[in-house]
Amino acid sequence: MSRPPVPREVHVRAPGKINLALAVGRATRDGYHPLATVFQAVSLIEEVTATAAERFSLTVDGLHADRVPTDDSNLALRAARRLAEHVGIDDGVHLHVRKGVPVAGGMAGGSADAAAALLACDTLWRTGLAREELSELAATLGADVPFALLGHTAVGRGRGDLLTPALSRGEYHWTLALQDHGLSTPEVFRTFDDVVGGVGDPVPDRALLQALGSGDPDAVGAALSNDLQPAALELAPHLAETLAVAEDAGALGVVVSGSGPTVAALARSRQHAVAIAAAITAAGVADGVLTASGPVPGARVVVGERAGVPHVGDRG
């Protein structure tokens, strides 16, 4: 039986994430903070096309594309090079990234790019790595990259890269308030150290996990939490008004996502998410608003479609 032809290009989609809960511990001697977080992958999607090439290169379009580096500092390009080194091949690749996740918004768009690039290049080069090995490689690139491979809902421990899938029933609808100026994750953590300090060994939020397991959106909204939120508000005080407008619009819960500055509001339904988006827009407390739903799968190869066609992300 003849083998199928080697693909000339591969298309992969990977999701952004929201931290439904983020507990942060006291910084250790190496400067890292132990985390206990609950991730949910949402329908804002990064699309990566990997095309066979002699050299490594990258282009970008889509949401906030002008803010994304295309040199060797780009995480997707680093992921491709890391895989090539890991398996010992000399092939190059051209990566084209179409962004659907806000840049520097605490939603791990760059990590999604890296996860998509790993899977796309693994498929393109036929290196045949198991998902477990890809996940181990992903963890060397960044703490959020393994979750972008896994998707759905999961508990993250350690630096956020030690994952355990979490039971989550039902579909959740989100309004995401964006800011043009991102927050530096290292600066947010430094401010956290100054303002809050953290505990020794953070644990996952049991009430949130129970609410997700029972599919109770009201209880999920009540349990949303983020230890980094006070630090984000210290650096960007105007986010307090964004949180307040979403609450006044009837959100079941509102939280700064990850290190911010994106504000995530949980809605009762898709229509309610659009209504919250309209309220935020009318109040002028965000530079952009998107709606999304979750949980969604992690990085996956798209067969029979080209990257760049409309995806399942909702736009408010």
Score class of each variant (00 low, 15 high):
V196L: 02
H181E: 12
D30F: 08
T291V: 15
P102W: 06
G197H: 00
Y172M: 06
P261G: 11
V274H: 15
H94T: 15
D180W: 00
E171T: 15
L35W: 09
V203G: 10
L167A: 14
A265V: 12
L290K: 11
A249K: 01
A278I: 02
V274I: 11
P186F: 03
A299F: 03
L228R: 08
V97W: 00
A154V: 10
A104S: 13
A143P: 07
A80S: 07
L150Q: 15
D72N: 03
G298H: 09
L183E: 12
A265Y: 09
G253P: 03
A231D: 13
G158V: 05
V199L: 04
A21L: 03
S168D: 01
G158D: 06
L77K: 07
D161Y: 02
V145N: 05
R306Y: 04
E187F: 00
G284M: 11
V301L: 12
V289M: 12
E187L: 11
H152T: 12
L63E: 09
P4G: 13
A104E: 10
A138L: 06
R26V: 08
T281M: 09
R159F: 02
A23N: 14
A53R: 09
D66W: 07
R315M: 09
V199F: 00
P7S: 08
K99V: 07
L183Q: 08
V42I: 15
E305Q: 15
V103K: 07
S184T: 02
E54F: 00
S73D: 07
T242C: 04
G110F: 04
D218A: 15
G106R: 07
V263S: 06
A114N: 03
T185W: 04
E305A: 15
L95F: 06
